[in-house]
Design a protein around this nucleic acid. Structure first.
Lengths: 213, 213
DNA sequence: TAGATTGTTAATCGATTAACAATC
DNA sequence: TAGATTGTTAATCGATTAACAATC
């Protein structure tokens, strides 16, 4: 039984590990595992048992002394913490190769989101069906936001356009950005969150390590 | 002038910041900026001047007291450290939506790589042209590796297949994996490096923060 | 009950920041 | 030369690990 929710003060090191816990617990659940100790999970995830117990206790006491953790319960708890039971409406901005791949590849529904609109500035793409949705003109974006109230935007646009479009989307009520452009987006409202994904940077760290081992 | 190369003992916190330094310096260079102090760069990148000087000094003394850093020189030095001047031959395994988007979206050449082959197990895709390259059968993979010696593999395949294919690729001489599958790949040879990209996890951390602010 | 394993406090380790002497 | 800014050492901060009393 969760003793307390201490969230808000959770360090980003912990937050970044949560989805991985959720994934591993999901796998255990799928395998039919009923209980797991921090020691067993640590072995599986290549972490320390100590770290796992520390991390989980940021959110409450989900285990039981002498027993460990019930896999199904813990999976559900972490899911709730992450917010997979929510349905945050999201829109895609920029429907090029990457944008299309992201929205067809990612299962939004299992991650607390629902894709409700796709926008692109290229007239050539207008009306195209992507994921069963018609690509819409950027001109209709504000009107769409007023009526449909999306809260998350997935940005797959060139870096030069990113800040301007993001500022515009903030005015339209967007509260979270999943940014794939080669640009470090930051918004200085405190109730708006940004997750930058830099695929180019990721490849470069691999290049570095490949050449320095 | 670099005093010493202390690499090998570089912490991963520092390594992960290197591509970002490279990007920001590239921008400054494009703008025609000649010199930059750690203080100015810190302001631009939202870091501390101290951290920048510490990071750079892991690799050598690139600055000059009283002056700062020469933008062009520092950009080139960091490029060399990252290995952008190398040409690591790479192959794509799995040419679905995501695989196609990655290889058409990422500029490999500016990141020390060259894509030399694309493979997929689906017969339907065989012979398709992607990025000016024909999709090849997985059956020809080993033979291809023997003759062309790729060193990096980009994995855009289902999680169930990942470990097996990665093990096979290790035997074929692959030294680095850029893994996009929903699977935590780890290879326990010490001369093989893995960069896992978990887009699903990335979205989940955004969902968490969106619901906890 | 005895054994096992948690929740939590204390110790350690590493990364970031501050300070300042070296020096361009 | 004087001013500026680095390279580097020392101080601080935060995250990870270890230890153990609480307890199922």
């Amino acid at each position: 039984m969760p003793k307390s929710d201490k969230s808000g003060s959770i360090s980003s090191s912990v937050i970044k590990r949560l989805p991985r816990y959720y994934r591993f617990l999901g796998e255990l659940l799928a395998k039919g595992t009923v209980r797991v100790s921090s020691q067993e999970l640590a072995l599986d995830m290549k972490l320390t048992a100590s770290q796992i117990r520390q991390d989980l206790n940021c959110f409450g006491g989900f285990g039981q002394q002498g027993y460990g953790y019930n896999v199904a319960d813990l999976h559900e708890e972490i899911g709730r913490i992450l917010g997979v039971d929510k349905v945050t409406p999201a829109i895609l901005i920029g429907c090029g190769n990457l944008g299309r791949a992201i929205v067809t590849h990612i299962n939004f529904e299992t991650r607390g989101c629902r894709l409700i609109g796709i926008f692109d500035e290229s007239p050539a793409l207008l009306g195209w069906q992507v994921n069963g949705m018609a690509v819409q003109s950027m001109d209709t974006l504000e009107q769409f936001c007023r009526s449909e109230n999306p809260e998350m935007a997935i940005l797959c646009i060139p870096k030069t356009a990113t800040q301007e479009i993001a500022d515009k989307l903030v005015k339209c009520g967007i509260k979270g950005f999943w940014n794939f452009s080669h640009y470090d987006l930051s918004i200085d409202h405190d109730n708006i969150v940004v997750e930058n994904v830099h695929l180019g940077d990721s490849l470069l760290t691999l290049t570095y390590r490949l050449n320095n081992h």
